[in-house]
């Protein structure tokens, strides 16, 4: 989780990723941030994030992102 928060802070520093649960719905992460984030997450966790996974539910919080990463690693 720590590494994920580091990646997020590198992309968009203006958010508290420990507590925030509306990163997408609250327009904190833009579509450009998401493009960066996906490329970073794929490199870091050796996963492929298909377009279908790019939904607010998977990116609204760091915890939701971690859950998605773990699921994709299992696949």
């Amino acid at each position: 989780m720590e590494r994920l928060i580091e990646i997020l802070e590198d992309i968009q520093p203006d958010a508290d990723y420990e507590t925030c649960t509306n990163l997408i719905d609250g327009h904190i992460l833009s579509s450009l941030d998401i493009i960066s984030l996906i490329a970073e997450l794929e490199d870091e966790y050796d996963i492929t994030i298909p377009a279908v996974e790019i939904v607010p539910a998977n990116f609204n919080s760091a915890a939701a992102m971690m859950k998605m990463i773990e699921r994709l690693q299992e696949d």
Partner: peptide, 26 residues
């Protein structure tokens, strides 16, 4: 999202981010 999720696009984003930074890279 399907266009930006294409492998070549993701590679482009990764390398551009390193050279151009967080805003202009993606």
């Amino acid at each position: 999202y399907p266009v930006t999720s294409a492998k070549s696009m993701k590679k482009l984003t990764s390398s551009a981010r390193k050279k151009l930074g967080n805003h202009f890279g993606p």
